[in-house]
Structures are given as C-alpha cells and as structure tokens.
Computed example of a mutant assay.
Amino acid sequence: MAIQLLAGKRGVIFGALDDQSLAWKIADVCHQMGAKFTLTNAPVALRMGALQELAAGIGAEVIPADATSIEDLENLFTKSEEILGGKIDFVLHAIGMSVNVRKKKDYTNLNHDWMQKTFDISAISFHKMCQVLYKGDHMAEWGSILGLSYIAAQRVFPDYGEMAESKALLESFARSFGYHFGEKNHVRVNTVSQSPTMTTAGKGIPGFTEFFGYGDNMSPLGNAPAEDCANFCATMFSDLTRYVTMQNLYHDGGFSNMGMNPKLLE
C-alpha cells in the first residue's frame, strides 16, 4: 500500500485523457496516497478519451469544463467543493494544445490565429484557473497549485513551435500568482518541467521519438518516467513542501544542467 501522504487532501485534476497522459498517472498516484479529488477536461476531450474509465477505477467524479471559460471554471470549483466537502487543497493544470504543431507548421510560418488559441488553451487557462480560485476563495490554507511545463520555455526546440512561448508564459503566471496566493492564504504555486515523456500529446510532436532518445542519453539519470513525475507532483501537493513556491522545478534526470554528455558521441 502506498504511503498515505495525501490522506484527507481534496483536489481537482485537469487534463487526464487516457492512460498514457501524465495527469492520469498523477491522479492514480494521488488516489493511492489517500487524496480525494474531482477530474475535469474539456467536453471534446471527454468524448475522445477514456476519463470515465479512470474515474470509475478510483471513485472520482468527472466535471466537464472548458478551461478557457471563466463560467465553466467557476462551476467546476463550486461543484468540486460540494462533492469533496470542503475547500480545495491541490490543483493540477496539465493542459496543452497547439494546432500549429499538429499541422506541422514551421515556426517561421505559423498561423497566428492558431497561435492565439494555443496561448489561450495552454497558458492563459492557467491564469483564468488561478483567478477563479483566488476570487472565489476556493483554496484551503497551505494548498498547492501545479502546472506542467517543459524546458522549451528556456531553450530552443524547433519542432515545439509556439508551445515554447506558451510554457514560458505559464511559468510566468505561476510566479506572479504565487506571490498573490502566498500573501492571501499561504497557497503555493509552482510549475514542474518534466522530461520528454511518451504521452499521447508528446508523441504527436514531429521527431519526438528521436528526441526522447537524445534526452535519455543526455541526462545522467535518464529521462524521468511518468510514474516518478506523479510521485514528485504528489510530494508537491503534500505538507512536506509547504515553503516551496513561485518555482519552476526540473524533474528531468539532470538534463537541464547538462551541456554535453560523452554518451552522445559514442
């Protein structure tokens, strides 16, 4: 039986689509560690994915919500408090989508209407989420909010398109709201920059399989597996990390501090 690190904690998890998604793994680990939470995704994602299967397996309720809609978010958090029986202790934002990347548009020839949609879904939704939580006073004292990011926010990965800027914006929102939430009720806000991971979204990026191998060879510990990311996120939701806030935390086997690994030359 897993350590009951999150016993008594209430949460909301965004973005689980299928058993290959990080949010699915995180939900599974949080359940094993004793947390109770609601699950949410956009209505279109609910039709495409298998979220109801996850919900049935862990006894969680699913509340459909478009993360770009303030009205949907207000309904989500109000209903979650009612279902869970109190204020929310943790929230996971695991949302990212780029039509430009899906359509394999080169960075120097992006569709800017699609770019704005990318920013709204992948980054501005985080600000909207935090704003609704803040104004509605939905977060319990010493709660934890996490967004999933990627090192492309700091470094150039050409095939990642405008998702790189989206992740940089996400990290900036986390820092800024981290200040406001900290002053309000000691809630911490962070982002986790995860290794390349064989998720449904990741595998849709051109050249991802090759880059996965590159990241694995570059990192002294290798790419961090999804389940270890889930354990790390659960720790960030727990009371053991009460004074960690406004940080972008690399969970990447050391990749972020490497310049060159001789293994790449072999």
Rank of each mutant, 00 (worst) to 15 (best):
F208S: 08
T191R: 02
T78E: 10
A16R: 00
G143C: 07
D113E: 15
Q131N: 13
G253S: 11
D66H: 07
M33W: 04
M163A: 07
Y134F: 13
R175L: 08
L170H: 04
L73K: 00
L54G: 01
F232N: 06
G202Q: 05
K25V: 03
A56Q: 14
Q116V: 07
H186F: 12
V189Q: 03
A174I: 07
H186L: 09
Y214H: 15
D228L: 10
T241L: 08
G222Y: 07
S80C: 08
G11Y: 03
E266N: 15
S166D: 11
G202W: 01
K25Y: 10
I205G: 00
F119M: 15
A153K: 01
A152D: 01
V12A: 05
Y179Q: 13
L264M: 15
W142I: 03
A42F: 08
D252H: 06
G178R: 03
S98G: 13
Q154L: 13
P206F: 09
A230Y: 02
S21K: 01
N231W: 07
S193T: 12
S166W: 04
Y107I: 15
G59W: 06
D137F: 00
T78Y: 07
H112F: 15
M48Q: 14
I121M: 09
I63H: 03
A16I: 04
N75W: 03
K105A: 11
P206D: 12
K203C: 12
H138M: 12
C130P: 01
G253A: 10
A123N: 10
R10P: 01
I63Y: 07
G254R: 06
S219M: 12
L110H: 09
G15T: 04
N111Q: 10
Q131W: 03
A67P: 02
Y107L: 15
A234C: 12
V187C: 06
G147E: 00
R188M: 04
G215C: 13
L169Q: 11
G57A: 10
